[in-house]
Amino acid sequence: MSEKILVGFDASDSAKRALDFAVAEAKAHDSELVVAHVLEWSPYSFLTPQELEERHKRRGEELERAEAAMITPVLTKLKDSGLKVSTALKYGHIADTLNKIAEEQGASQIFIGRTGHSGLSTRLFGSVAGSLAQTASVAVTIVP
């Protein structure tokens, strides 16, 4: 049985390197690839009445945009790689949601790029890669 590898992808340079690394690993071990993009979202954020009204419409637009910018290019790129590739596009807290997708899909590894921020915001709020490494239930590979 082939294993599944989940890649958290956001089109950043480090995410692209993580994807390349994951592709190489998948080829070497004959694994399947799951490319996931998570749109940062908290159900506890505050919205104005106008935003409430338009939320459903905006959500559709955001998903479409993410599909076009994040998912489609990857699929095109990997079309001829011979790998079995599936995708996931979800809303939520990025680290938690990636972990959830890994559990749902039965992935045994997560590959993720290390985002470039090293400043105050990371210190205060932590980084996606950092919190994923701490909370994930499967092995996490962080690609610089």
Partner: peptide
């Protein structure tokens, strides 16, 4: 708290958000 919210509906207006917006009015 979102106990009964379908996770696949994430990104839509949650009960919390509707309540918070109404309260601020």
């Amino acid at each position: 708290k979102g106990d009964y919210s379908d996770p696949n509906d994430a990104g839509e207006v949650s009960h919390f958000q509707a309540l918070a917006t109404a309260l601020s009015g």
